[in-house]
């Protein structure tokens, strides 16, 4: 009987120890560091202080928080508007085509996301594709300053994150019961009513999962604003990265991360509360 429990205790202790050392402990350390004082020479030192949290109440930081939430939200909404009809069209295909088209979404994402972001530079440049086409069509008479602006950042984010919206939506729409749509139509609902009353509520889990998977990374992929944005396009990710690797203010960086994590936790909590009782799971 010794073998019986051996495997169970072995696997459980391995995963618990790993998670405690490399997930829980580091997060506790971040929380502790965020209350320590900043020191030029030793990165951190005692005494404990709330100074960094109070510093965060500064207009500059608040502005970055606000802007990050705004741009990430904008990116999420555009991804949803672009992604929903796209996912819907693919989900309604015959199985044979469907897997091919899904594969076609995934293939570009196996090449480095950095390189794909870099390729956006060639497209958004003053002499790049978008400007050339618009000039040729006569829509504009001089190149638009797309690159190194917030617009470029949002386009870059959408390009990188759209599949994370499409894939959860796709699995959700695939499972939609066609009989419900037929029934609604038989009972005299027009297309819009059917969509609003049946399709939309039933695909809400997909919409929410997709939005979470787009919204969370959008605020923290620091290399996209770094490559495509101007000097003013600093998002939370860049701010945290700066505190750790440039100005070496670890306590302030930690405090920003903690506030950010708490805000995200709050959003996820709301999600969990609204989803409870409904069909749950399939977050990933």
């Amino acid at each position: 009987m010794k073998n019986e429990n051996g495997l169970k205790y072995f696997s459980l202790s391995v995963i618990w120890i790993w998670l405690i050392i490399f997930a829980l402990l580091p997060f506790l350390l971040v929380s502790i560091v965020s209350f320590l004082s900043h020191d030029e020479n030793h990165l951190i030192r005692l005494p404990f202080t709330l100074a960094h949290y109070i510093d965060l109440n500064n207009a500059i930081y608040l502005k970055i928080f606000e802007k990050s939430f705004y741009l990430a939200g904008l990116c999420t909404i555009i991804c949803l508007i672009l992604g929903y009809p796209f996912a819907y069209a693919i989900a309604r295909m015959e199985n044979h085509f469907k897997s091919l088209f899904i594969l076609l979404i995934i293939i570009p994402f196996w090449t480095s996301s950095l390189i794909r972001t870099y390729s956006m530079i060639t497209i958004l440049k003053p002499k790049g594709i978008i400007n050339s086409v618009l000039l040729w069509l006569g829509i504009i008479d001089k190149p638009l300053a797309l690159l190194y602006s917030d617009i470029a950042v949002v386009i870059g984010l959408i390009y990188n994150l759209l599949p994370f919206m499409v894939l959860p939506l796709l699995t959700n729409i695939e499972r939609l019961d066609n009989r419900l749509l037929d029934a609604a139509r038989d009972l005299g609902a027009n297309r819009f009513t059917t969509f609003r009353k049946i399709t939309l509520p039933l695909t809400m889990p997909g919409i929410i999962s997709g939005s979470i998977l787009v919204f969370l990374p959008a605020m923290t992929i620091f290399y996209i604003p770094d490559l495509l944005g101007g000097s003013k396009s600093i998002l939370l990710g860049n701010l945290i990265q700066n505190q750790f690797l440039v100005t070496q203010n670890w306590p302030l960086g930690s405090a920003i991360s903690i506030v950010f994590t708490l805000l995200l936790g709050f959003l996820l909590f709301i999600y969990w509360r609204t989803m409870r009782g409904k069909e749950h799971g399939n977050l990933i």
Partner: peptide
């Protein structure tokens, strides 16, 4: 915890491991 780890923003995981 496994699910939270998936949802943890990369940057938060990066700095916390750096501190560790």
């Amino acid at each position: 915890m496994v699910f939270i780890l998936i949802l943890t923003p990369d940057i938060v995981m990066g700095i916390s491991l750096l501190i560790l």
